[in-house]
Design a protein around this nucleic acid. Structure first.
Lengths: 352, 352
DNA sequence: ATGAAAGCGCTAACAG
DNA sequence: CTGTTAGCGCTTTCAT
């Protein structure tokens, strides 16, 4: 038995296809054929190769494979903020569905910052990812579009843009549903509050839905407050205000529609700290229905997004696009968004 | 009729170094030198190459680069469960610190299942990752060790094993601290509860600390309950029991040390649903100090792990190992773990 | 049924 | 200073 030179894998470079070939006494093409399960290899040879493979602990070098194939199985995933449970769940689902379709996910957390969003995408591009999944898209749409359009398939999943496939809920509708719920239980002064981390297209669409619902019900001017938790500081229509004053002052708003659950829970926390009772003194509705929202102690009324469905459809869409099963102009797939009424909303105690 | 836009993949392949070279009228080595910022390229040439690069939108193909360099800048990150806020935060920190040291993170979520843990690691190996960061290690230590030891640098970050560098808190100490806190406020019957998702080495170490604290204080036999939320079902010492009975029956336990915050919050939720008051009827301490634990409505007493510090040291360790700045046998770096007393713990209402 | 050979896009000597 | 050359590990015709 000729012992190959590199038979001790204890240390050093991983075995290559050549190591396997020489150990099995065949050519590397044959090894390649076995590895890829191609037909036309005799049973005996196939077996010998298999032996060599696991004696050496050989694994094909994906980089080399993908270099020659001129395409990778890597899917870039742009996540807004992993610390936001909604994104964390989405990331998890996306990874699972990607794996199920043979893709490896490469995440890139953007800290909600369009600077690092761009940088992250550049990195993904350098890895020649087969496609990019945006789970949040806050950045400069122009630059990003220029950089990506017609270069690599892109899907916006639970976010949106007009230059790629999108799979998301109807945020405008969600905004209306939430606002209407508040109106129906009796609120007249309802504020829309967003926090710095999320002021993207989805946020805008939700805000639109909110405005429309207000208008249809003939309710006063919409009010958009950009709040920076945990401080008291907020800005309304470019004007500095404090959240406390908004929630307790003259003509106080009795209800808040937050742009997402994290914001909603922050508002709730704020209320708890300043002694405002929820829902007696303040009703809150969020967006996303993160797991936490369902806890008895939080009991947040919110708009549920079907996370797993979004992820599944998102991956299906981009995979089809990559594999050319889907051609033509960008598609839009909307999935349902449902109001989940819990305990953070109730009629106002002293209706205006 | 609008002209249909085509979002299909790039019309042409991405430009290669050769495209740049010919456009700039130089050789590809020169382009390479410019791209890598090597000295010894005249200002004029450098400029011409730069022009060509951004006219073409050229980005080096990392796969090709890493293939020839025989090493990647990819760091594999094995995450237990991204839906657990502790891991989500860690993942985020790890990614940031990795990027700061020039590495790209490739995550792999294991669903707490050692089957997919192994599969995930195989994938990472196929990508020839420069190193692997375990944020959780629940799998079959034997197989994993055999597969990885001496093949690729490994760091266990906020988890542990004896065959790689580890950066973590002293879980045994944490277990003691938490248990002692409970004992000090007056509890005598304290249970340790873990949920299926986390029964790894860290869990074991925390359990040990718990046992030791109990022993030192001369308190009754330790009690390990494996609970499957949200059901009532639990198993104690291989015996089927119900959580309600454990918390309300004869000789009920008045306090619970949960293996982590997610478990602790689940216990709290369970208590809320069955009408047990926390902390009056039941004290709870968790482990990790996830952001949620600090909410006024949760107010969980817990053991804080310095997440960012763990991530930073973890990355520093593996990067040093990869770059051969660190040699020799595996190192262990322990960082502080602190008790954060909040409102989920108090003296028992009717001491036994 | 198997092997030989030509690259994939890039880096890294080594020449000129 | 710039170009030439030889691969990295693999897939993929095309011969044998």
């Amino acid at each position: 038995m000729a012992v190959p030179r590199d038979s001790a894998p204890a240390v050093g470079r991983p075995p290559t296809i050549l190591d396997v070939a020489s150990r099995a006494g065949v050519s590397k093409s044959t090894v390649s054929n076995v590895v890829r399960g191609m037909p036309g290899v005799s049973e005996t040879t196939r077996h010998r190769v298999r032996m060599a493979i696991d004696q050496l602990g050989y694994r094909p070098n994906v980089l080399a494979r993908q270099l020659v194939q001129q395409r990778t199985n890597i899917l870039g995933v742009v996540v807004g903020d992993l610390a936001n449970p909604f994104f964390a769940e989405m990331a998890k689902s996306v990874e699972r569905h990607a794996a199920a379709r043979g893709y490896t996910a490469m995440f890139c957390n953007t800290e909600g910052n369009s600077q690092s969003e761009l940088a992250g995408v550049e990195t993904l591009l350098e890895y020649r990812v087969a496609g990019i999944v945006f789970l949040a898209f806050s950045g400069d749409s122009r630059t990003m579009k220029e950089r990506l359009e017609h270069r690599v398939p892109v899907v916006f999943c639970s976010c949106t843009a007009d230059w790629g496939d999108v799979v998301s809920v109807d945020d405008v509708r969600g905004g209306k549903l939430g606002t209407n719920h508040l109106i129906e239980v009796g609120h007249r002064r309802i504020a829309y509050v967003s926090i710095p981390e999320l002021e993207d297209q989805s946020d805008l669409a939700r805000w639109q839905g909110y405005c429309e619902a207000l208008r249809i019900s003939g309710l006063g001017p919409p009010m958009r407050v950009s709040w920076s938790p945990p401080s008291d500081h907020a800005v309304v229509d470019g004007e500095d205000r404090t959240l406390s004053e908004i929630l307790t002052g003259q003509d106080r708003t009795t209800a808040v529609f937050a742009s997402n659950d994290v914001a909603a829970i922050s508002v709730q926390e704020f209320a708890d700290r300043v002694g405002l009772r929820v829902p007696e003194d303040l009703s809150i509705v969020g967006f996303d229905d993160v797991p936490m929202a369902g806890l008895a102690r939080i009991a947040l009324t919110t708009l549920a997004q079907p996370r797993d469905k979004l992820a599944k459809l998102g991956i299906a869409t981009i995979a089809d696009r990559i594999e050319r099963k889907l051609k033509g102009p960008p598609t839009t797939t909307l999935v349902e968004v449902d109001l989940v009424a819990r305990k953070s909303t109730a009629p106002p105690s002293n209706p205006s």
